[in-house]
């Protein structure tokens, strides 16, 4: 059995979001209907461009294998992969039921890609987003099995969605999601224009590997949507510096949060603090914060930040949370 290790999904997603250099331009498509002359639609091909260059792929791929961070975004756009790689249970639990069913129906290739399993699935397209070094190790074998489209971890999520939509032939669903996203963002900008202009936000977070008694100022993940797309005023690391979320802060520092008007923190879909973040809200310091006692600490649900469907659910949660803000005195 040939196996190749994959980088862990969480770190990969974080790296993807964090990178400042965008090496990939969204896939550009060029019709190349070499099979059209024969009238065989399955044989029609297109050419897409990704981090591994121009790749000729089937015009309408039927058996897609997704590797790394491509599986959930592809499924989110309505894709039905025949093979997927490992997803943590905590991420699976956040999927809508129909997407989870799709993921479970596909062959699970595990955390380490079993290339023999991939070959046995007889895919006609392989979509990959993993670290460059890992891809280099398996590129030759993958391209031997089927046309392989690769994006590096530094690909911004919207660019990845465009690329997946183009290569995976799910552009229609992607177009609808994009339109809904743009509509929601425009509406929030209008509804919360005053909040956007006059409110100092801070987003807190904790991770499963955070040391006990610590939290972070979260400036990566869903909060980037709130900051960059909606325009809410969250603290951000200076250009060229590590994200604020890279530095763990002791609980003692919670008392310094009084300088912010509104705190957002990770919550489940019912608004309760996530299990990982619960130790923060259990502290007396948190409970005594004026922001908390005045109802300005908002739990926001973030089911993912690398596909439009997940981001739309985040925006919905953020919208509902912002609507509960008491008027500023």
């Amino acid at each position: 059995m040939t196996t190749t290790p994959l980088k862990r999904r969480g770190a990969a997603a974080a790296a993807a979001v964090l990178s400042l250099a965008l090496v990939l331009t969204a896939c550009g498509g060029g019709d190349d209907k070499s099979g059209a002359a024969t009238g065989d639609k399955a044989a029609e091909t297109r050419t897409v461009t990704a981090a591994n260059g121009a790749v000729t792929i089937p015009a309408a791929p039927q058996r897609v294998v997704t590797i790394g961070n491509t599986d959930l975004p592809f499924i989110d756009m309505g894709g039905k992969p025949v093979g997927v790689t490992g997803v943590p249970d905590s991420d699976l639990a956040l999927l809508p039921p129909e997407q989870r069913a799709t993921w479970e129906k596909a062959e699970n290739l595990g955390d380490e890609v079993d290339l023999e399993k991939v070959a046995a699935l007889k895919p006609d397209l392989i979509l990959v987003q993993i670290p460059d070094a890992e891809f280099k190790k398996m590129e030759k074998q993958l391209t031997t099995i089927a046309p392989t489209v690769f994006w590096g971890l530094d690909t911004e999520w919207k660019a990845l969605a465009e690329g997946l939509g183009e290569a995976g032939n799910v552009k229609d669903a992607l177009g609808k999601q994009k339109a809904e996203f743009e509509g929601d963002v425009a509406k929030m900008k209008q509804t919360y224009a005053d909040v956007i202009k006059n409110t100092k936000f801070v987003n807190l977070d904790r991770y499963s590997n955070s040391d006990p008694g610590t939290y972070v100022i979260g400036d990566i993940g869903c909060v980037e949507i709130a900051q960059d797309d909606v325009g809410l005023n969250f603290p951000k690391a200076p250009a060229g510096k590590d994200p604020l979320a890279y530095e763990s802060l002791p609980f003692e520092q919670l008392s310094k949060l009084s300088q912010y008007d509104v705190i957002t923190y990770p919550a489940d879909d019912k608004g309760q603090a996530t299990q990982v973040f619960a130790p923060v809200v259990a502290t007396n310091t948190w409970k005594a914060l004026p922001t908390v006692t005045s109802g300005r600490a908002l739990g926001v649900f973030c089911p993912g930040n690398n596909s439009y469907g997940a981001v739309l659910r985040y925006l919905d949660s953020l919208d509902k949370a912002l609507a509960t803000l008491p008027a500023k005195k």
Partner: peptide, 13 residues
């Protein structure tokens, strides 16, 4: 008292 800094002393330090 319920002062926020006092919580930091009693709960953390």
């Amino acid at each position: 008292t319920a002062d926020i800094d006092q919580f930091a002393i009693r709960d953390f330090r």
